[in-house]
Design a protein around this nucleic acid. Structure first.
Length: 117
DNA sequence: ATTATGACTCTCA
DNA sequence: ATGAGAGCCATAA
């Protein structure tokens, strides 16, 4: 059973998305976990679905395989371009290195010098 | 109340 | 590496 109510879950999820630095990404499952509802990766996606046209960096949310999950929806191409514009590199299989770009909240406190570029 | 539907994720074959 | 299948959880019908 959920650890937090839907409203809270959604609020925290959006909060997290807003904090993702350019050039970094987070997964749906990760978002669900951090928002207080482990296992609710689908809801994370559901929330993103409702973000159409918002000012949030929705493009920085991808699936656990390091691939964008929006090709079926038609704008997967756009999402990849936006990310590449921020420095994220996608391999020929349309996959990027999560170990390298995945972002975690606590990183804000610790400086993350190199890595990028 | 029940069913259908996903911007999901794991586990196997 | 690729794909099917089964959990998962909330929303819309």
């Amino acid at each position: 059973m959920p650890v937090v109510d839907e409203a809270t879950f959604r609020r925290k999820a959006l909060e997290l998305v807003a904090r993702i630095p350019a050039g970094r990404v987070v997964t749906y499952g990760q978002l669900a976990l951090l928002a207080g509802n482990p296992g609710a990766a689908r809801q994370a996606g559901q929330i993103m679905h409702s973000l159409a046209g918002s000012d949030l960096p929705w493009q920085r949310v991808i699936n656990a395989q390091g691939r964008v999950s929006t090709h079926k929806l038609g704008f997967g191409d756009l999402q990849e371009r936006l990310l590449q514009a921020e420095g994220v590199v996608f391999g020929p299989s349309g996959r990027c290195d999560l170990g390298k770009y995945q972002w975690w909240p606590d990183e804000e406190k610790a400086a993350t010098p190199e890595r990028l570029f």
